[in-house]
Nucleic acid binder design. Structure first.
Length: 597
RNA sequence: GGAGCCGUAGUUCAGCCCGGUCAGAACGCCGGCCUGUCAAGCCGGAGGGCGCGGGUUCAAGUCCCGUCGGCUCCGCCA
């Protein structure tokens, strides 16, 4: 075999007249009788190679047997294509390689699908033949783009004095948060390691150890249901800094993100990024990671309907709920279209979807008869409704209203192409409450994680909450405690989140107490962190970016599967390898596991 | 745990609403022709019984039930 002197995609003006050797895959063959064209492809691109029967009958004969995806080495001379035969669609389209020598390195069976962009393959086919799927231009570009992003991220961290440290994968299960993946211990029958949901505790301990600035590009594992933007194993760009406050972490994050967008895409993001309070995100968009690239904001109507005759609304008010609406302006929806949206919200758990259509300044709707003249008038004012508008209502518990209208808003935005895809909407969500009441478990849970620090001035509220006996008052106190946390949102995706952490043992114990994590359990689960906090833990904070999501957004993709080399299906299966699979009885015996049922 | 969409040649998909030449198209594949194409072209050919299992019916890709798989979403994801 002869060895490559050029990548196919790198052949250029300066190779004219020179002899080069290319190694690659036969992308396509065009046989015209006396002349054969071979599009030869490698990682860097594609170039046309040509052989004429009368010039080189021996090579021609071999070239005639080539099929798609055969692997070959060719030696030949680069020349300018004859005038009029250039291909402007190819980077190398002005040149071609005249083949002098051809070596067949391997054949290929007929492919299950063509290596081209046009065919949209089912996810299972893509993943089963991932090695072929990744030969396709866009998939290859996704991974090469991701590769460049790793390099840029490392460069920015190094410029700012961060130290790269690896943390363990075989570690300890922590309560709260996602379900852990467990690994049975062979040496300790009945005991299990947990795979890390994030390096959270280790990076805090590295701060206590004095490393001051840490980063890691690291896999995290969570055994939860999958989504287009959620895989059981995913990559975080994780960092932590000592002797800093929110501003330091956020401004460093902004520099990192802005550098990525600039160097990889030439996009200038305006820094500092805008900040919006958590409460505003929910009030206006019904989401803590709103897509602000279109309107359709939520309109508050609870007050307007406080004396309503409409039973559906009244019941919502009686349970302390709220009434909100969105106005789909100028949509002039048909009954059929409204039915489709109704079906959508029913899928979210809504009983139905109340709506009003404005026609010739009049309100048309099955529910309008329940409204007084005054209510109708004020409704038109508050929603600024005009002829052609359709207003959708949700009346329920506050969280349900946010969920239903927030998701309906997104659904309409996508369904009716309201989203402005031309740019990137990048902003921080700040002022999260530290905890919220979890009705199902009848206790408070952390919004971020239990190591997030409350604001200094809110700590007294926390202390009073611990003492408070009356639940309603306790809720009021706890809910008014703000966290020193921040989430980064781009185009409606949460791409990062972090906080200033608790660095004093006493405060950490107070938080555990409110979360009703018993002292014994706290000791058992993360006593090692509490212990570390005894020995001079510096104030610290950090953030982690969801690297897969970030890359997907930058590439304009809806699914992170397209930026992961070997992802899993929605059921957590890898069609390429067949994982997960049954274990060999011997292996199970080694790790002291007996499978029941 | 739940909702929705989808599953028909190697691939992408039409046919399903209104059961009865409905088993089709394109690409790919195989053979032939062809000296400038680049999604080459022209001629010819092979290839599936409609994810799987029940049921309804004289008759089922087509209707019903169940099940498996893919996708999207809710729950879940500190």
């Amino acid at each position: 075999m002869f060895k490559r002197t050029r990548y196919c995609g790198h052949v250029s003006e300066k190779d004219l007249g020179k002899e080069v050797v290319l190694n690659g895959w036969v992308h396509r063959v065009r046989n015209h009788g006396g002349v054969i064209f071979i599009d030869l492809r490698d990682r860097e691109g594609l170039i046309q190679c040509v052989v004429e029967e009368k010039e080189n009958p021996r090579v021609f004969e071999l070239a005639d047997t080539l099929r798609s995806e055969y692997v070959v080495a060719v030696r030949g001379t680069v020349r300018r294509r004859p005038p009029g035969t250039e291909n402007p669609k190819l980077k190398t389209g002005d040149y071609e390689l005249v083949i002098k020598e051809l070596s067949l390195l391997n054949t290929s069976e007929t492919l299950p699908f063509p290596i081209e962009e046009e065919t949209h393959l089912s996810e299972e086919t893509k993943l089963r033949y991932r090695y072929l799927d990744l030969r396709r231009e866009s998939m290859k570009e996704n991974l090469l783009f991701r590769h460049k992003a790793y390099q840029t991220v490392r460069k920015v961290f190094l410029e700012h004095g961060f130290v790269e440290v690896e943390t363990p994968f075989l570690t300890k299960s922590t309560p709260e948060g996602a379900r852990d993946f467990l690994v049975p211990s062979r040496l300790h029958p009945g005991k299990f390691y947990a795979l890390p949901q994030s390096p959270q505790l280790f990076k805090q301990i590295l701060m206590v150890a004095g490393f001051d600035r840490y980063f890691q590009i690291v896999k995290c594992l969570r055994d939860e249901d999958l989504r287009a933007d959620r895989q059981p194993e995913f990559t975080q760009v994780d960092f932590e800094m000592s002797f800093v406050d929110e501003e330091d972490v956020m401004s460093f994050s902004e520099e990192l993100i802005a550098t990525l967008f600039k160097e990889l895409m030439g996009v200038e993001l305006k820094t500092p990024f805008e900040r919006i309070p958590y409460s505003e995100a929910l009030e206006r968009y019904g989401s803590d990671k709103p897509d602000r690239r279109f309107g359709l904001e939520l309109i508050e109507l609870t007050d307007l309907f406080k004396n309503t005759e409409f039973m559906v609304f009244r019941r919502a008010l009686e349970i302390g709920g709220v009434i909100k609406a969105i106005n789909f302006k100028g949509s002039d929806l048909s009954r059929k279209e409204i039915d489709e949206l109704t079906q959508f919200v029913q899928g979210l758990g809504a009983k139905g979807l109340a709506w009003i259509k404005v026609e010739d300044g009049r309100l048309t709707s099955p529910i309008v008869k329940f409204f007084s003249e005054e209510e109708k008038k004020r409704l038109l004012e508050l929603t600024q409704a005009q002829t052609g508008d359709v207003i959708f209502f949700s009346a329920d518990r506050r969280d349900a209203v946010y969920r239903i209208l927030g998701n309906l808003r997104l659904y309409i935005g996508k369904r009716y192409n309201l989203i402005d895809n031309s740019g990137f909407d990048v902003f921080w969500v700040v002022d999260f409450p530290l905890m919220e009441w979890e009705e199902e478990e009848k206790r408070f849970v952390s919004l971020h994680h239990p190591f997030t620090s409350p604001r200094e001035e809110d700590i007294p509220l926390l202390r009073r909450a611990v003492e408070e006996g009356a639940l309603e008052e306790k809720k009021r106190l706890v809910h008014s405690v703000r966290a020193r946390a921040y989430d980064l949102v781009i185009n409606g995706y949460e791409v990062g989140g972090g906080s200033i952490r608790i660095h004093k043992r006493e405060l950490q114990e107070l938080v555990f107490k409110l979360l009703e994590i018993p002292q014994v359990e706290a000791e058992e689960r993360f006593g090692f962190l509490l212990n570390a906090l005894r020995y001079g833990a510096p104030p610290h904070g950090g953030l982690a970016f969801g690297f897969d999501r970030l890359i997907a957004i930058m590439r304009g993709l809806d699914s992170i599967r397209d930026v992961i080399a070997f992802p899993k299906t929605q059921k957590g299966i890898c069609p390429l390898t067949g994982a997960p699979d049954y274990a060999d009885p011997k292996q199970l015996k080694d790790v002291h596991i007996k499978v029941v049922e």
